[in-house]
């Protein structure tokens, strides 16, 4: 059993959970994930580690209420426990001094981009962060990102805060402004790291492709065991089948077949709806 020692609301439907898991906290690195199972009937889902604290033995995850499992997680309070956590799984982010890097976080993807931005900053990179949400009140971790970035740019789909539009739209304008035109004004960008919904990561990869900037994305595919045993998470990278759980979760965004990822993410759409409506019915929530 793994105890929830603290729970914070970051935005509507988005919460941060601090979980007591000292062994995982001791080994966790930015970019890695855990697989959790909430109760005996529960499914196993992967969640990226949004932070860890070795001294108090906790890790934290940020979860958005979208389906039954995340709704169930959201119903838990400080002091409650979840039965299974496995991790840290997957490969850690590549952290070194690349020079000028851009960290892009879309929606709840800002949570896992934060520890990566922080590590990149610590290693001496000039960190430009671009974070976005559908609207102002859904934007998360603004302060944390401010503290760890040399530049922070904010976007919202409806224009209620910052740039009016998607993070990919802002990124495009930013790159055009900084990378084209006058040669001595050019500031080389060596790497872009993007985490968010698959469509957003795909859009970011398309924006950076013509500029030939190495673009790393962290993929969120369906998983069961998380150790390379089942192949549920398989995707195509550069025409080759890869397992996100053990070969990733980070890949070269220019090589990823996002159409396949998007299609595979929808395998259990109908099942998820059925599960959710059953859960709502059980909890007496509006359907």
């Amino acid at each position: 059993m793994y105890k929830i020692v603290k729970k914070e609301k970051l935005a509507e439907d988005i919460e941060r959970f601090y979980l007591k898991a000292p062994l995982i906290a001791r080994k966790a690195k930015a970019g890695q994930f855990i697989v959790i199972r909430i109760n005996e009937d529960g499914e196993r889902i992967p969640l990226t580690i949004a932070g860890h604290n070795r001294s108090n033995g906790t890790i934290n995850i940020v979860s958005e209420r979208v389906g039954k499992t995340t709704a169930l997680l959201s119903s838990l309070k400080k002091g409650d426990s979840i039965i299974d956590i496995v991790g840290p799984l997957g490969n850690a982010s590549e952290i070194e001094n690349f020079g000028r890097v851009i960290c892009v976080g879309g929606g709840v993807g800002t949570a896992p981009i934060f520890p990566i931005a922080r590590e990149l900053k610590k290693t001496g990179n000039y960190v430009i962060s671009i974070i976005g949400a559908r609207r102002k009140d859904l934007l998360i971790l603004k302060k944390e990102m401010e503290n760890t970035s040399d530049e922070l740019h904010i976007c919202s789909d409806n224009g209620s805060i910052g740039y009016h539009g998607f993070v990919s739209g802002f990124l495009k304008e930013y790159l055009e402004e900084n990378l084209t035109g006058n040669a001595d004004k050019k500031k080389d960008i060596t790497r872009v790291i993007a985490i968010g919904p698959a469509v957003m990561m795909s859009a970011v990869a398309e924006v950076t492709r013509p500029f030939n900037i190495k673009t790393i994305v962290s993929l969120n595919s369906i998983m069961v065991d998380g150790t390379g045993m089942c192949g549920a998470c398989r995707i195509e990278v550069g025409g080759e089948t890869k397992f996100v759980c053990v070969d990733g979760p980070e890949f070269d965004g220019h090589q990823v077949n996002f159409d396949l990822l998007l299609s595979r993410q929808k395998i259990y759409c109908d099942h998820e709806k059925e599960c959710m409506s059953l859960y709502k019915h059980k909890c007496g929530l509006p359907e």
Partner: peptide, 17 residues
């Protein structure tokens, strides 16, 4: 694994599809 370990054959009583 879905069927045996996760009891998907009892979906939706068990959550794994």
């Amino acid at each position: 694994t879905r069927s045996n370990l996760m009891k998907a054959y009892k979906f939706p009583r068990y959550d794994t599809p």
